[in-house]
Design a binder for these strands. Structure first.
Ligand code: FES
Ligand code: FES
Lengths: 146, 146
DNA sequence: TTTAAAAAAGACATTGAAGTCATTTATAAT
DNA sequence: ATTATAAATGACTTCAATGTCTTTTTTAAA
């Protein structure tokens, strides 16, 4: 795949919270990790970053957990990528060379630049909300690892 | 970048040999590693795989080294990727889910499938020869890490 | 046939992503 | 105030990609 596991965990975790935290209920890391078959503590660290970047809210203590805020649904996947693995990918040479720019184009530079920008555009356009079309149970099934 | 370092080393190594082994001269790993600023022994292992897959020829001993064969120039980059890091990327879920198919599409499946197939197509179309247009010294500069 | 050169092979070391575990901090209910 | 709950934090382990070093194998020249 193009991304780190952290990115996948983050997207699925955010999505799960967005799908489940209907009313006042908050969603605990325990539940997310179980339903998504994801390592609990590792997911915890990733969700922590997500909260620090205001993509989700969290509260400690009893009846605490993760919940959406007023920006959650409009967060683009590119933002999630930025939080989890950074955006260096998009400015790195596909062949691993130090510089990647039109001044020092490796033999695949122009082609790769096009593909990278396609991917980046797709991630910038797609928001959490865009991933939530469809019926809830099916969506949840489709983000669970089985 | 989308690829492993191994892939980049392989492409650059093959390209260097294709550019330098004009006449009867063979190119040694020592020279390749130096010119491309790549770890010698690691490159050696990668070149070894490349030779095993008949992308290049090699001979041991004095006056030995790596040389192009009659298929080298028509090898697509996809083949180089297959040799170095495999093609699993193209059938893996972008979110890390076990299955990746239209039966179990994650929320980014269709978009990612499109992007992946664009990349795959680009790599399948582009051959070593396609990367060799232009003047030799500049090409060599452009695959050196500096 | 001996020697030197070069690739091939194998045994380790390093590194960063991923994962585990224990402790600390914050908070809601009583 | 105390307690229980849940996130946050930090120390550690694991694993695969990468990188280093040494030894082995092959081959051409003399
Ligand atoms: S220089 Fe290689 S992709 Fe830009
Ligand atoms: S199922 Fe996720 S990319 Fe195909």
């Amino acid at each position: 795949m193009f991304f780190t596991k952290s990115f996948g965990y983050a997207v699925r975790g955010i999505l799960y919270v967005a799908l489940m935290s209907d009313e006042k209920r908050k969603v605990q890391i325990e539940e997310i990790a179980e339903r998504l078959s994801v390592p609990k503590h590792f997911l915890g660290k990733i969700m922590n970053k997500v909260v620090k970047q205001k993509i989700l809210d969290s509260t400690k203590g009893p009846y605490g957990g993760f919940s959406v805020n007023n920006s959650t649904l409009s967060v683009p996947l590119l933002k999630v990528m930025e939080v989890t693995e950074g955006l260096e990918q998009f400015s790195m040479c596909a062949l691993g060379l130090k510089k990647c720019d039109p001044e020092h184009p490796c033999p695949v530079h122009y082609k790769m630049e096009g593909l990278r920008s396609d991917l980046r555009k797709a991630l910038a356009e797609d928001t959490i909300n865009d991933l939530m079309i469809g019926n809830k149970p099916e969506l949840i099934r489709n983000i669970s690892a089985t």
